[in-house]
C-alpha cells in the first residue's frame, strides 16, 4: 500500500507550491493511474514518493514504512521505471544490468540469477540477454528497465510512462505484464501516463492532478460514471434530417448529436426524424472515455476530489 499524507513541495523561493497538500491511498494489489497535464506536479510527487526529492512537508509511506525515516525498509518495498531516463546501463548487457541491480538491492547471486532468468524469459528477452542494452530497440530497452525494477520482486512498482514510444506489440506485452503483476502476483502498480486509453484499460483507480493539487481520486468506473453525459445522445439515421440538427454525414449514414433537458425529449426528436423520412439506425447515450473526463477535470476550475 502507498500512503501519501498532505505532501507539499515548494522549490526554492517559488511563490506557488509545485505540489500542494496532496493526500492519497493506493490499495495493495491495485493498478493506480496517476494522471495530469505537464507541469501538474506528477513528477515532483513521484520523486518525493521514491525518496529522490525531500518534501517541504507531509509524509510518504511505502508498505507502511516512512520514506524519510525508514528509508532502507521503504526502498525494499519499491521498484520504479522513471520516465525520461535510461534507468539501466546501456553499456552493459541485459543480464549484467539485472545482476547489478539485483545485487544492489541486496539479493544473493543465485537468487538474482534465478529471478533475472524468469524476468528475461517472461519479457521475451532471454535470447538477447548477453547483448548490450544500447543496441536494443526502444521497446526492448523499456522491457529491460521494467525487469530491473522488478528484479527484487518488490510489492510496489512505479511505472512512469511505461508504454511511451513503444510499438503496438511491445505496448501489448507491457500492458499484459502490468495486469499479470497486479492480478496474479498482488503487486501494487502506480502508473503515470499521458496515454489515457492505457490508463482506462489498466487502472482500477485514477487520480488526476492539476496545478499541484488533486482534482480527482476515484475508482475508474465511478469517475467515468460521474462524467456520463446523461443529456447527450447520438442518433444514427439513414436519409435526410430536418434543419436545425447538428449532423455529420459519412458514407450515407448521418450521425446527429442532440442535447435534451429531459430524457422524454428523445422520443420527440425521434418522432421528428421519422416524420421527415429518416430511418433510425441506432440511438446511444454518449459514454465519456477517460480522455473526456481528464480534459474536463484539467480545464474546469471548480472540480474537487
Amino acid at each position: 500500500m502507498i500512503e501519501i499524507d498532505a505532501l507539499t513541495k515548494v522549490y526554492g523561493q517559488a511563490q506557488a507550491p509545485a505540489v500542494d497538500e496532496v493526500s492519497l491511498r493506493v490499495p495493495a494489489g491495485s493498478v493506480f493511474g496517476f494522471l495530469g497535464p505537464n507541469g501538474a506536479g506528477k513528477t515532483t510527487t513521484i520523486k518525493m514518493l521514491a525518496g529522490l526529492l525531500t518534501p517541504t512537508s507531509g509524509e510518504v509511506r511505502l508498505g507502511g514504512f516512512d520514506v524519510a525515516r525508514q528509508r532502507p525498509a521503504a526502498m525494499a518495498q519499491f521498484g520504479a521505471v522513471l520516465e525520461g531516463s535510461r534507468n539501466v546501463y546501456w553499456s552493459l548487457s541485459a543480464w549484467q544490468n539485472l545482476m547489478y541491480f539485483g545485487r544492489l538491492k541486496g539479493l544473493r547471486k543465485a537468487r538474482v540469477a534465478e529471478r533475472a532468468r524468469d524476468l528475461l524469459t517472461g519479457l521475451g528477452l532471454w535470447d538477447r540477454r548477453d547483448d548490450k542494452v544500447g543496441g536494443f530497440s526502444r521497446g526492448m530497452q523499456q522491457k529491460v528497465a521494467i525487469a530491473a525494477a522488478l528484479i527484487a520482486d518488490p510489492p510496489i512498482v512505479l511505472l512512469d510512462e511505461p508504454t511511451l514510444g513503444l510499438d503496438v506489440e511491445a505496448t501489448r506485452t507491457v500492458k499484459n505484464w502490468i495486469t499479470e503483476q497486479s492480478r496474479e502476483l498482488g503487486t501494487t502498480v502506480l502508473l503515470t501516463t499521458h496515454q489515457l486509453d492505457v490508463a482506462q484499460e489498466l487502472c482500477d483507480r485514477v487520480a488526476v492532478m492539476r496545478r499541484g493539487r488533486l482534482v480527482a481520486d476515484l475508482p475508474t468506473r465511478e469517475l467515468l460514471a460521474g462524467f456520463r453525459e446523461r443529456d447527450r445522445y447520438e442518433i444514427r439515421v439513414e436519409g435526410t434530417v430536418p434543419p436545425g440538427f447538428e449532423a455529420v454525414t459519412r458514407e450515407g449514414v448521418t450521425t446527429i448529436s442532440v442535447r435534451v433537458s429531459d430524457p422524454g425529449e428523445v422520443y420527440e426528436v425521434v418522432a421528428r426524424l421519422r416524420a421527415h423520412g429518416a430511418v433510425l439506425e441506432s440511438l446511444t447515450q454518449v459514454q465519456p472515455d477517460l480522455e473526456d473526463v481528464f480534459l474536463a477535470l484539467v480545464n474546469e476550475p471548480s472540480h474537487a476530489a
Partner: peptide
C-alpha cells in the same frame, strides 16, 4: 544525465558506499 543514478538511489544502500 542519463537518469541511471536515480535508480541507484532506489536501494537501501548509502550512496557514499557506492
Amino acid at each position: 544525465q542519463s537518469g541511471v543514478l536515480e535508480q541507484t538511489y532506489l536501494t537501501s544502500l548509502p550512496s557514499a558506499a557506492l
